[in-house]
Amino acid sequence: MTPNPAALSPAELRARADAASAHLPGLILSAERLAAMVAPGAHGLRRAGPGEDFWQYRPAHPGDTARSIDWRRSARSDAQYVRDREAQTAQSIGLWVSAGQGMGYGGGADRPTKGHRAQVLALALAMVLLRGGEKVGLLGQPARAGRVQADRIAEAFAMAATAADDSDAPTPDLLRPNRRLVILSDFLTDPAWVQALLARAGALGVRGVLMQVLDPDEENFPYSGAVVFRSLSGRVRHDSRDAAGLRQAYLTRLAERRDWLRAQADGAGWHFGHHSTDHAPAVALGWLYRVLGG
């Protein structure tokens, strides 16, 4: 969620800018290190289209002309093949990171919050894509190329306001045709917005990725005894005298939620993945980069 500067007083704007500037160097440095680790020689996302460089052979489809058939390759089998070239025009990729209050959870002093890890992943992905010549921007903002765009994205993350409650969802009206979109959230609140977003995306030819980011406590539910569970917003509270007795039901519901998200993504031609903040972020970033290029 992006703050509305017009609604803030000069003092509030100054205080927000000071807080953002303190957080910004660490965010950029973490993302730069991660991006360099995963793809030091990044190239653009590969896809068929107008260009000079060979990309791949694919089986001929109805509608392919005889001129497009690679007869030398086809002569080696019983099928006909087309020689695809790699498109050389930049693609536009949108990024959205949930600002729900639940993303501020970090189960231990040695772990980042979900929101911080999601921002680092998104910014590092942006850096890798920009290095490959693609255009990147936050959802609802212009997608641009160039190194300076990474600084703009980092500043927007640092200045982003937290949502009023635990839930936060992207607006389908912000989608633009034939782009790619990366959504990072914990997906723990009502997921009905996912269906609406993917339906709109399908109508516009938008493909993308859903990535669930969770704290290991949310992954494993390591609680026992008397525990008071409370959302960060304070709007949800549950008192339990036997937290261990809830573990299996919780893990079952988490698995069901992931199965549902995966089914929604598969049905829309998207990808779904999940990441725990105690795992190496390089693994998650590498997966995001690969599936975007697939």
Results as ranks from 00 to 15, higher is better:
18 D>N: 13
7 A>Y: 00
126 A>R: 01
201 A>Y: 07
188 L>S: 04
169 A>Q: 08
57 Y>A: 07
280 A>P: 03
124 A>G: 04
203 A>M: 13
109 A>G: 15
170 P>T: 12
128 V>R: 03
99 A>C: 07
188 L>P: 05
244 A>H: 06
259 D>A: 14
100 G>F: 01
69 I>W: 01
215 D>A: 07
118 A>K: 05
215 D>P: 03
123 L>G: 05
245 G>Y: 05
254 L>Q: 09
182 V>I: 14
48 A>S: 14
56 Q>N: 00
234 G>W: 02
190 D>Q: 09
113 T>K: 05
87 A>S: 15
97 V>M: 05
229 F>G: 09
179 R>G: 11
48 A>K: 09
8 L>Y: 02
179 R>A: 10
92 S>P: 05
163 A>M: 07
134 E>A: 10
108 G>A: 15
174 L>G: 13
1 M>G: 13
243 A>T: 02
7 A>K: 04
62 P>C: 12
185 S>D: 11
54 F>Y: 13
112 P>F: 04
279 H>V: 05
274 H>A: 15
35 A>R: 10
45 L>C: 10
122 A>D: 11
200 R>G: 09
82 V>T: 07
238 H>W: 11
54 F>H: 10
110 D>S: 11
243 A>F: 01
84 D>T: 01
238 H>M: 15
70 D>Y: 04
28 I>Y: 03
146 G>S: 02
211 M>H: 09
222 P>C: 07
1 M>D: 15
61 H>M: 14
149 Q>F: 07
94 G>A: 10
109 A>I: 13
23 H>W: 05
150 A>W: 00
285 L>K: 11
252 T>K: 14
279 H>G: 14
148 V>S: 13
20 A>E: 03
4 N>I: 01
186 D>E: 06
256 E>M: 07
109 A>C: 08
164 A>Q: 14
90 A>Y: 05
37 M>N: 11
260 W>A: 06
199 A>Y: 04
224 S>L: 08
104 G>D: 14
205 G>R: 00
136 V>I: 04
26 G>A: 15
219 E>I: 12
127 M>P: 08
152 R>F: 12
50 P>T: 08
163 A>K: 04
160 A>P: 08
258 R>A: 09
212 Q>H: 04
144 R>M: 15
157 F>C: 04
241 R>M: 06
100 G>R: 03
203 A>P: 03
123 L>F: 09
216 P>Y: 06
20 A>H: 02
195 Q>Y: 06
217 D>A: 14
32 E>M: 10
46 R>Q: 12
106 G>Y: 06
65 T>G: 07
134 E>K: 06
292 L>Q: 07
226 A>Y: 05
119 Q>C: 11
93 I>E: 01
63 G>S: 11
34 L>T: 00
208 G>H: 02
44 G>P: 02
13 L>N: 02
261 L>G: 12
264 Q>R: 15
54 F>S: 08
29 L>I: 12
25 P>Q: 03
68 S>F: 04
292 L>R: 08
294 G>A: 08
36 A>Y: 04
15 A>F: 01
217 D>M: 08
101 Q>H: 03
275 H>K: 00
262 R>Q: 15
166 D>S: 09
111 R>I: 12
68 S>N: 13
19 A>I: 01
180 R>D: 07
56 Q>A: 04
7 A>I: 00
31 A>W: 00
